[in-house]
Design a protein around this nucleic acid. Structure first.
Length: 402
DNA sequence: CGAGATTCATGTGAAGTATACCTTTAGGCTTAA
DNA sequence: AAGCCTAAAGGTATACTTCACATGAATCTCGTA
């Protein structure tokens, strides 16, 4: 019986025309052929990188701008075009894109090089080797034949914040050790002030050229959304006003186009799941909530247990209407949870660091304040909508068998 | 009343420790001559 | 004797702990007007 109705459901699902023509277009790793309102930047970067087609090393380049201002897309677009030409002319140019934020992938110097090597098909053990040994292995393999490499390091500020600017120095120095290979670096940073705290020597060699990406305004985001939805959706599936609202939402957050696209995609998914054939304005609100929730849930699942416990402690306190809350309180609750789960509690020192990392992830807001006579502490606030808290708590508890 | 000292609760940096994993090396075992 | 496997030795990165000192504004203290 059950099977029958399911079959019916699936058949129905298939017969019903999908809202999407091509869902990929809205996903965050998609590189469009058209990037509205970024011609200037595209031309500029193209101009800087062009020498590589003559196998001359292009200048190092540094891109600044808030999230979702098109830094990644533009650099990927330009480099892919270069690659296309290079292929035609049979030039050995290689382009490597690396996101330094990914935990356990490229968030330390060692891991960055390991990951880099992996892109060239060299396997290096995840630990155990001296870092300069890893450099040597990497360089040796790189030198096997002549080529020109363009290395795109996304969110490089995160990496440097965590591990210091020595990495940058080493990276720029690599070039002088290479004979057959030219290595250019494109650094991408969300933090506009990032370079100010970097060793001046590194600064001058790394940012030979600089480019700032200004945030999009609401109208520009609308253009982007229209452009993409032409490819992504069948005609007439979008209710009047949906795009405007998406854009408005995203513009509210410093013009984050990535977010706008995500909103639109999730809204579409929601309405499709509902069995509707039109994306309604209401869907966008739901999408907003779902995105936030998913973001946190994803982090919750991928972070180690200790992080989860800390977060749970914070959520628990938040729920009891204690807001804002402080490190000491959180730590007490955290210890309680630890004993329940029979996990050895970490020291407060470490938990303090974990709270700082949760802050970096954007789940909470932590600010150091002084309460005068009553000491100094971190003031912790949730950075996610209240409505999502219960679900997250539930998931957390489930994952921890509480 | 106000300047300076005090105080609290925790931030923060440095150094040390535990763990997991790597390469190298030496010893033991097998094999083939 | 040569070849191969294994286990120990020596080394590293990372996550965490320990120790010690830094912070910074509310509060206290005490001299002064």
């Amino acid at each position: 019986m059950r099977g029958d109705s399911l079959t019916k459901f699936f058949n129905n699902y298939l017969e019903k025309p999908s809202i999407f023509l091509n869902k990929k277009v809205l996903q965050s790793n998609y590189t469009p052929d058209m990037i509205p309102h970024r011609n200037e930047q595209i031309d500029y970067i193209a101009g800087i990188l062009a020498p590589c087609l003559r196998l001359e090393k292009p200048s190092n380049l540094f891109l600044y701008g808030k999230t979702g201002t098109g830094k990644t897309v533009v650099s990927k677009y330009v480099t892919s075009q270069i690659l296309k030409v290079a292929k035609q002319k049979n030039l050995s140019i290689e382009i490597i894109y690396l996101n330094c934020k990914l935990k356990k992938v490229a968030d330390t110097e060692y891991r960055l090089i390991v990951q880099l090597a992996k892109e060239f098909g060299i396997e290096i053990p995840p630990t155990g080797l001296p870092t300069d040994e890893v450099y040597k292995i990497f360089i040796k393999h790189l030198e096997q034949r002549e080529r020109l490499v363009i290395l795109i390091l996304d969110e490089i500020d995160q990496l440097v914040k965590k591990t210091g600017d020595e990495i940058l120095y080493n990276l720029t120095r690599i070039n002088s050790e290479l004979n057959k290979v030219e290595l250019s670096i494109i650094g991408i940073s969300n933090d506009l002030l990032f370079m100010d705290n970097v060793d001046p020597r590194v600064k001058s060699s790394l940012s030979e050229e600089e480019l700032v990406f200004a945030p999009y305004n609401a109208l520009q985001i609308q253009d982007i959304l229209r452009e993409r939805s032409k490819l992504a959706f069948r005609t007439d599936v979008i209710q009047e006003g949906v795009i405007e609202k998406c854009a408005a939402y995203a513009a509210r957050e410093h013009g984050d186009a990535r977010r706008a696209l995500e909103l639109l995609r999730v809204a579409a998914e929601l309405s499709e799941r509902r069995g509707d054939s039109k994306i309604l304005i209401k869907d966008i609100d739901d999408a907003e909530e779902k995105i936030e929730k998913d973001k946190v849930l994803d982090i919750v699942h991928t972070q180690p247990k200790q992080f989860q416990l800390t977060l749970l402690a914070i959520l628990d306190l938040c729920d009891k209407a204690v807001s804002p809350l402080f490190t000491g309180d959180v730590y007490e609750i955290y210890k309680d949870f630890c004993s329940v789960v029979k996990l050895k509690p970490l020291t407060q020192r470490r938990v303090s660091d974990i709270i700082a990392e949760l802050d970096m992830l954007g789940i909470i807001n932590a600010k150091v304040i002084s309460k005068g006579r009553y000491g100094r502490t971190k003031e912790i606030r949730m950075a996610i909508p209240q409505s999502t808290v219960p679900t997250i708590r539930h998931t957390l508890k489930e994952g921890l068998n509480l």
